[in-house]
Design a protein around this nucleic acid. Sequence first.
DNA 1: CTGTATCCTACAAGATACTG
DNA 2: CAGTATCTTGTAGGATACAG
Lengths: 121, 121
Amino acid sequence: MPVRLNECPVEVVFTMLSGRWKIPIFRYLYKNNIPVRYSGLLRHLPSISKKILTEQLRELERDGIIERKSYPEPRPRVEYMLTSSGRSMIVFLDKMSDWGEKHILSNKSENSSCRRPQPLI
Amino acid sequence: MPVRLNECPVEVVFTMLSGRWKIPIFRYLYKNNIPVRYSGLLRHLPSISKKILTEQLRELERDGIIERKSYPEPRPRVEYMLTSSGRSMIVFLDKMSDWGEKHILSNKSENSSCRRPQPLI
DNA sequence: CTGTATCCTACAAGATACTG
DNA sequence: CAGTATCTTGTAGGATACAG
């Protein structure tokens, strides 16, 4: 999804992060806080297909949120990590999470790899 | 778009606000800060259709972000306004806007009804 | 004025197979 | 291992007409 320019920053940022798997990807990279391999992402995202994973990664990279490093060794290896810019999104994501926990109705379940008091998103 | 439960609050909130016109609607209601009529929204949103406007309003209402008041007078009148819960979204929307203005690349244009130093989103 | 009811289209997302 | 290449599908968004 191309980012629409000439627009309210809020809308642009929303577009950057809109995509079925972008928040899960962000969360995984954020928590690990070290470079993560393509195969690592593939394993940790329950039901994503390779095509979609590559697509979402490419868009996140294009928007300066993640960084891609390729090591063309005998067994090729590619690592992804948040840029400092991407990482700094935690500022509003954390506030969003707070708002959500206060205001989301009928959310009684105890699941979730991203619920407080674990720190942040 | 139904809100997916049992999920990361961030994703839920994203889903609540994802929709081509939800941020523009929020912004209009936020700025006016008084009840706004259906026709007012229709006039101020450049190219929305009635079906879509109604749809997005219904979803925002369902999620507790806006409130709908109907006055079935001779000339029917319906007013929409943010709930206090919806209004409190400004906390993270404002942070998002900050992030956007710092990090969105190639956004040189001088347009926009939502750019600082006008306060907030 | 404030909506429904239909019909249509574009595109994000997915399934699956193939490749350097 | 880390991807493309194709094909299919679900659905958000829109155009238009009608209605209380």
